[in-house]
Design a protein around this nucleic acid. Structure first.
Lengths: 352, 352
DNA sequence: GTTAGCACTCTGCTTTATAGAGTGCTAATA
DNA sequence: TATTAGCACTCTATAAAGCAGAGTGCTAAC
């Protein structure tokens, strides 16, 4: 038995680990050999179980808070569990219906995002986050310039049927309403239908050409377009709901830890940065405890999934909760919500 | 002494109450007769102080957590304190400068509100709230309609130089761009410069007239205007910052209480409703403990002030913290912030 | 009216005792 | 050789007991 240390685990050890973690997730208390011995799937005596547990502890998969206290999973233990041991549980019909009906209802983008975030938090009783669709990836439908006072111009940017942005830019000189009209006409005919990223790229290209050719009219157009497309920094990039749900969990009941967590939620940019990493990965991705690399989430897990509009990944959503969460339910739930949110945002699937 | 019960308090008792509350606010622990006897302003023996404290307790101004524990102020005690005993402390120059410079900087309305809220929370190390200016009270500068698909129309509403709203409305029939142009021209010439409330009233009046005279063109105009002006329900009406600051206070360290408090913050509408009550009152208003009548705030105090643009009250700001807060500093601070926020939002004081 | 003195009460902390849970090790068993 | 029963041991959690300290209310003296 001692020689086995560090070697691959056999079937029985894995089954035992699975059983232990399931039990711990359910009860929230360190699991001892006695309770596990009653699991009919194992059918082992407490003594044998203790031997196996000692092996698992040597491998760093479980850990004993103190001598007389059963075992709890470590991060590595959870990792192994979600990667290869987990039996995902199909969603209940009622939940499925709720998600479907909530997201299908007529909403603009922001409302849909809000609904999704609230669904995530309400149904899991944890915290839900949804990032807004990356602006560069949606396409330009229509742009409009309205003169305000002096050199200030209001830009209205319609990205698809549902979504309208507005912002104020400061131009280098004063433009007349008809000039502005001309400029927007030009941009609309040239670029509408293309993605904002593509438009931005094209505009920068045009800028060079216009400068070379000393084409003032063209220069006005592209400079204006550039100003209009430049990112606004302080835009709210994600919607978080159900923060207070996390206050109920005993593993997060430490007030300092909670403060860090809630500070993180109100800062947002760190959360966004973390989620942005998932933009590339398709499907569900999980961060357990310190795996997120973000200290306030050390005692939390994130179950994330990117979501796509028309097969293009545009955003990420996630459920945040204590490491001890019902992964087998949360994972399929996050997966489905991502899928349905993507569908709900797709202009093609919307009634005109 | 016994006959005095229920009668007006003499000078000395009030001075003692003041001293006691100041001490309690400073230390956060029940104040006993021994410590108060060392206050040179009182110059009384512990025994005498105990007698006076017994009177104050009979009057419900202070309260003893248990037999051997000094006294703490009750809500009535705090009330008397802030109403008649408090010596407000002038702001420090550095704070004054910070507020001034932060608010004077060029911002649009939303940014100014955010800055004010953050100032309130940062400088008090408690929670800051600022309601957005009541929309009815600002005046219409410009309105514009852009056709989207079918019967959907994008409304751009410019209320003053800094502020732009946009929303989508559904019209009864399809309008051509030129029709929309005509309609907006008409509304702009007729109503711009008037307050939104006045415009709304006038529109409803016109609606009747147009219906009577069967004037279809006019009917189109006013119906469109009405749709454009109707309130959007789910608009975010206030900005809260520094929620997590409240996690540091021992009197709020109960996790259930905190949960209630944070739920209240994320719901917002109850907070807004509470603050709306202060719209009528000029100057600083204070709610201590249960006085707010809103259960989650039972262990908190609110120091509120309305703020005005051009002598017209348009919104409210507040600091929320534990009942045991440094009122003498918070009050002048809230007062000043309200004044400077109002000035910062006044278009007349802004550079064109 | 004010104050010193004193018995009394209540908290908060430390100490001690006890029951219970769970372990690791050893020796017996299949 | 793998499994199991048995047992001494460790650690926690909880309650009970003891004790110092803070503060009070009351009485009697000033």
């Amino acid at each position: 038995m001692v020689e086995k240390k560090g070697q691959a685990l056999n079937e029985r050890s894995l089954l035992l680990l699975k059983s232990l973690i399931e039990r711990y997730i359910h009860d929230g208390q360190p699991v001892g050999s006695r309770v596990l011995s009653k699991d009919p799937a194992l059918n082992l005596s407490p003594a044998t179980i203790r031997n196996v547990m000692a092996d698992l502890e040597d491998l760093g998969l479980i850990h004993s808070p103190h001598t007389s206290a059963g075992r709890v999973p470590t991060v590595s233990g959870y990792r192994l569990f979600v990667d290869s041991l987990l039996t995902v549980k199909p969603l209940e019909i009622s939940e499925l219906n709720l998600i479907q009906s909530s997201l299908v209802a007529k909403h603009d983008i922001n409302q849909s995002i809000g609904v999704a975030s609230k669904l995530l938090s309400d149904l899991t009783r944890m915290t839900g986050v949804v990032t807004l669709p990356k602006r560069e990836l949606v396409s330009l439908r229509h742009i409009e310039f309205l003169p305000l006072s002096n050199t200030r111009v209001l830009v209205i940017l319609v990205t698809n049927e549902q979504e309208v942005h507005n912002k104020i830019i400061h131009t280098s000189r004063e433009f007349s309403p008809s000039e502005l009209q001309q400029i927007s006409n030009y941009i609309n005919t040239m670029y509408s239908g293309r993605s904002l990223a593509a438009v931005k790229k094209a505009v920068i290209e045009e800028l060079k050409v216009a400068q070379e050719r000393m084409n003032q009219a063209m220069l006005d157009v592209v400079q204006m377009a550039k100003l209009a497309l430049d990112q606004d920094e302080n835009s709210e990039d994600c919607v978080i709901s159900g923060e207070t749900n996390l206050m109920g969990f005993s593993e997060l009941s430490d007030i300092d830890r909670l403060k860090q967590l809630f500070d993180a939620f109100s800062q947002k940019h760190n959360v966004i940065h973390l989620l942005d990493q998932c933009l590339n990965a398709e499907g569900v991705q999980i961060f357990i405890g310190e795996e997120s690399g973000y200290q306030p989430f050390n005692h939390c897990s994130l179950v994330t999934s990117s979501y796509s509009i028309d097969d293009e990944v545009v955003g990420v959503l996630a459920v945040i909760g204590p490491t001890r969460m019902a992964y087998e339910k949360v994972i399929p739930f996050v997966e489905l919500t991502a899928k349905l949110l993507g569908a709900a945002l797709n202009p093609k699937t919307l009634a005109p």
